[in-house]
Amino acid sequence: MVSPDPFQNAFLKSLDPADFAAIRGHLKAVELREGASLIELGRTVVWAHLPLTAVVSLVVELEAGERIEVALVGPDSILGTFGVLGEPVALVHAVVLVPGAALLIEAARLRALAQQSAAFRDNLMRHSQALFVQAQQSVGCNASHTVEARLARWLLRVRDLSGRDRFKLTQELMAEMIGVRRNSVSFVAHALQQANIIRFSRGHIEIINVAELNRATCECYRAVKLQYKRLGLSTGEEPGA
């Protein structure tokens, strides 16, 4: 079995050699299954996840049972910073959106290293800030922008993190993630398909014109990229790639 390349994950790739050496032997390779719950609200954060090819959705759940996404974590970052830097209690649910490979490490080991290494602690802080950037931009986007713009933003973000143009995504799931009704997503998706921007087929969606999808999105997609750049972080693929 071929060992995964830890430097597929941007957080690990950005570490100082000494910090990476301190945790390398404690990283465990796993495959994350679609729909798997990695972190549950209110539970103790025991593990931190470092996606290599997987993409994880951070969601909040309402009393009526609805879920809405606040951020995505993929090979660009680390899942579990809030359990390392602060109280080790989950503030959101984390669910696997795109299945794939990841590395696991005990949150306690990261917490210990953060206490010893200022550079490591600063790196964790920047990635934690990046999640906050996503969350606050999502709030503004969901409150102010059209369903088409929100769906385009979300699809581009999933593409950036997964490095793929084709995903297994239902209209129900997409509607849930951006906080709208399924029929609204169905209407917009049909229009985008008629314009030859995306293609739907039996629970799968394929982006066939990235440039046009980028034109359909709102300012929020570019705003998040700009904030990531200011933090010195990667957001994955460029929209025209």
Results as ranks from 00 to 15, higher is better:
residue 172 E to H: 08
residue 221 Y to H: 03
residue 175 A to C: 06
residue 205 I to T: 12
residue 174 M to K: 10
residue 213 L to A: 04
residue 148 E to I: 02
residue 167 F to G: 04
residue 141 C to I: 09
residue 205 I to W: 03
residue 179 G to R: 02
residue 145 H to F: 13
residue 146 T to G: 10
residue 179 G to E: 09
residue 177 M to S: 07
residue 163 G to N: 08
residue 131 L to G: 03
residue 138 S to D: 05
residue 212 E to P: 06
residue 218 C to F: 00
residue 149 A to C: 09
residue 143 A to V: 13
residue 185 V to M: 05
residue 173 L to S: 12
residue 139 V to T: 02
residue 205 I to Y: 08
residue 190 H to V: 04
residue 151 L to S: 10
residue 131 L to C: 07
residue 203 G to N: 07
residue 190 H to T: 13
residue 166 R to L: 02
residue 194 Q to L: 15
residue 190 H to P: 00
residue 132 F to G: 15
residue 175 A to Y: 01
residue 150 R to F: 03
residue 177 M to C: 00
residue 136 Q to G: 00
residue 194 Q to G: 07
residue 207 I to P: 01
residue 146 T to E: 13
residue 204 H to L: 13
residue 187 F to D: 11
residue 164 R to M: 11
residue 189 A to R: 04
residue 181 R to A: 09
residue 168 K to M: 13
residue 185 V to F: 07
residue 202 R to A: 15
residue 169 L to I: 15
residue 188 V to K: 08
residue 163 G to Y: 07
residue 136 Q to V: 06
residue 164 R to S: 14
residue 159 R to W: 10
residue 142 N to E: 04
residue 141 C to V: 02
residue 201 S to W: 04
residue 143 A to H: 09
residue 195 A to Q: 15
residue 142 N to Y: 15
residue 139 V to Y: 11
residue 219 E to I: 10
residue 207 I to V: 13
residue 206 E to T: 15
residue 160 D to T: 08
residue 166 R to H: 09
residue 194 Q to Y: 03
residue 189 A to T: 05
residue 156 L to G: 11
residue 204 H to F: 14
residue 180 V to D: 00
residue 176 E to H: 02
residue 189 A to N: 06
residue 187 F to V: 13
residue 195 A to F: 09
residue 136 Q to I: 10
residue 201 S to H: 13
residue 220 C to S: 10
residue 147 V to F: 05
residue 196 N to Q: 15
residue 198 I to K: 08
residue 167 F to A: 07
residue 161 L to I: 07
residue 182 R to D: 04
residue 177 M to K: 08
residue 134 Q to S: 08
residue 214 N to G: 13
residue 176 E to Y: 03
residue 200 F to D: 07
residue 131 L to T: 11
residue 204 H to Q: 14
residue 144 S to T: 14
residue 195 A to G: 01
residue 221 Y to R: 04
residue 173 L to P: 02
residue 181 R to F: 12
residue 217 T to S: 14
residue 169 L to N: 04
residue 197 I to E: 06
residue 210 V to H: 12
residue 174 M to F: 05
residue 202 R to F: 05
residue 148 E to N: 04
residue 165 D to R: 03
residue 184 S to V: 04
residue 211 A to F: 07
residue 190 H to F: 02
residue 135 A to F: 01
residue 190 H to L: 13
residue 158 V to S: 06
residue 220 C to K: 10
residue 180 V to F: 06
residue 146 T to H: 12
residue 220 C to M: 05
residue 207 I to E: 09
residue 180 V to E: 01
residue 171 Q to Y: 11
residue 200 F to S: 06
residue 197 I to L: 04
residue 157 R to V: 03
residue 211 A to S: 14
residue 203 G to L: 07
residue 211 A to I: 05
residue 214 N to W: 10
residue 216 A to R: 15
residue 190 H to E: 15
residue 208 I to R: 09
residue 166 R to P: 00
residue 214 N to K: 08
residue 155 L to D: 01
residue 196 N to L: 03
residue 139 V to K: 03
residue 172 E to I: 09
residue 208 I to G: 10
residue 141 C to G: 06
residue 220 C to Q: 10
residue 189 A to W: 11
residue 181 R to G: 11
residue 214 N to T: 07
residue 151 L to Q: 04
residue 184 S to W: 11
residue 166 R to E: 13
residue 156 L to F: 01
residue 206 E to S: 14
